[in-house]
Simulated assay, not measured.
Amino acid sequence: FISFSLGIGLFVLLPLYGTKLMGMVFTTIDESSIVFNTVDGVIRIMVFLIYILSMNLSKDIKRVFEYHGAEHKTVHAYEAGVELTPENIDNFSITHPRCGTSFLIIVMILSILVFSFIPKDWSFVWKFLSRIVLMPLIAGLAYEFTKFAAKKMHNPLIRVMTAPGIWLQKLTAKKPSRDQIEVALKALNEVLEMEFGEQQKEQGEGNAA
């Protein structure tokens, strides 16, 4: 509950209230729903960047980000079909198009578009509540776009559209050490064993029946 409340406060309430205050100074902000929500979205992205940058100040979190990079490298290697050795895995990128960081930045960009349909004359409370209600829709759209884009990275337009998320991963995915890659590889092997081992078990039971 505390984490949820903090997230709502930082990424919904703070940008919305900040935009409202700016609208008192710059009246053009309140005159257009598009302008209002663009300012709101820019503030949200700035808060997110500050949040990520502040996390990088922690040595423990930086180590987590190194494991994040190891995860990306390992998934890249698996999807490329190469032999899964630490040496081969280390040759791949620390960024990945299906990364959660990219997903979050897509959510924030899409929110600007979706929130622009909220009438500008709605009260502050209704604007706040509507943002919470619309968040599942925005998250769903962002998820589908992330999946689609990951399959179309050869398309120049898609590469441009996903570039902000890839750039942002430079802050959340760091170059891992060899032992961190080995941990990521072990984790991947465990997942593959769980997935394909269960499939083989089900096939065996089906044949026995």
Rank of each mutant, 00 (worst) to 15 (best):
L134A: 15
L171W: 10
I89W: 00
F48I: 01
T162P: 01
R44F: 02
S93Q: 09
T146S: 14
Q200W: 07
G69C: 05
F103W: 12
L13Y: 12
D179H: 05
T101V: 03
L129M: 13
G18F: 10
S58F: 03
L188Y: 13
Y51K: 05
T162M: 14
F148N: 04
T27P: 01
K147N: 15
R44E: 11
M55R: 01
I61V: 14
W126P: 00
Y17F: 15
S32N: 15
E195A: 12
G197K: 11
V191E: 13
P156G: 03
E195N: 12
N207W: 06
A209K: 13
N155V: 01
E71A: 00
K59F: 00
M135N: 13
T27I: 12
A163C: 06
K152D: 11
A187W: 08
V47S: 07
L104H: 06
T172W: 04
P176I: 07
G100R: 10
F103V: 03
L129Y: 08
L57T: 08
G206C: 01
M135A: 15
P136W: 08
T28E: 10
Q200N: 09
I94C: 10
D30V: 15
E193F: 02
I138S: 10
M22S: 12
N189T: 05
D121N: 15
Y78H: 04
F196S: 04
M24E: 12
K152Y: 12
T19A: 03
P15Q: 13
I29A: 14
M108C: 09
T27Y: 04
M161W: 11
L129S: 15
K151S: 14
K186D: 08
V160C: 03
L6V: 10
L57E: 14
V82E: 00
F103P: 07
A187Q: 13
F1Q: 02
R44D: 05
W126H: 06
K175Y: 06
K127I: 15
L110P: 00
T85A: 07
A187M: 13
S32F: 09
W122A: 13
A163T: 11
S58A: 04
A149R: 06
E202V: 05
T19W: 01
I45L: 09
S33M: 01
A142Q: 11
W126G: 00
F48L: 09
P119E: 10
L168T: 09
V35A: 12
R44C: 09
H76K: 06
L168Y: 12
F1E: 12
M46W: 01
F48D: 00
E190A: 13
R131H: 06
Y78P: 00
F145Q: 03
I112R: 02
F1I: 03
E87K: 09
L10K: 14
K62P: 03
A70R: 07
S111D: 01
E182L: 04
S130V: 07
M55V: 02
Y67A: 02
L110Y: 07
Y51I: 06
A163I: 05
P119N: 11
P156N: 00
N37C: 02
A139K: 09
K62E: 04
A209E: 09
S58R: 02
T101I: 05
